[in-house]
Design a binder for these strands. Structure first.
Lengths: 106, 106
DNA sequence: TTTGTACTTGGTAATATGGCAATATAGCCA
DNA sequence: TGGCTATATTGCCATATTACCAAGTACAAA
């Protein structure tokens, strides 16, 4: 059954796609350190509140973040503890990419 | 200097974006196990060869893969060894997401 | 040089994404 | 209830992605 594999890659791609935006990466980074409400995030990100809300919906949709509602406030936080691995791997790729480009310039 | 941080998130987002497609994830998975030429990948992915070639260019652009040319053939391979961490984290998110959804249905 | 194989690149149409403004919804307090 | 604050949703537009076909390049064998 090859169908199942394809669906698995699609599911993974959704997660990667959810992370494929600088604002959302910043938000994940912030929310990993501590939970924050939309207003705080909006200030940090520096975009329109509606835009931030949309980004949050995307991250929540794939399960990367979760909400806790307290009155009129929505506190978001990261659900998984493995994001640091993601980020450090990205840094590795970025660094080796720089090295690779330098080598190819010689 | 907040500018520098923003650029870092943009750089990371490019990597995430490069991975944000099921075919490219499959290709990364395959190329991590062994290097392959475009023809072999095309067969595995099941898309047009030009499409596969473009996906490869995207992955190469961000430094996730590298080429080795042997005559008329182009052998691609993954450059970094930390992709397994990526994939397993994605699985974690997917699993916890399923659990979360089940819980919210109760 | 001609022919064939292996890739890559350019063109194009369909679809998806990202941003802001405007509007809607929800909780709180007077 | 009415008004205020905090979020979420919707509409619309500009831009980005993706896929395929067609055309182009590169290497190799004849």
């Amino acid at each position: 059954m090859k169908e199942k594999l394809r669906k698995q890659y699609e599911a993974r791609a959704k997660i990667a796609k959810a992370m494929a935006h600088p604002s959302r990466l910043l938000m994940l980074d912030l929310l990993q350190k501590q939970e924050m409400c939309v207003g705080e995030l909006t200030e940090q990100v520096g975009a329109d509140q509606s835009t931030v809300s949309k980004h949050l919906a995307i991250l929540k949709e794939v399960g990367l973040i979760d909400v806790r509602k307290a009155g009129a406030l929505s506190y978001y936080r990261v659900t998984c503890g493995c994001l640091d691995g993601f980020f450090s791997c990205m840094e590795t790729v970025l660094l080796s990419d720089v090295k690779g480009r330098q080598k190819s310039l010689k």
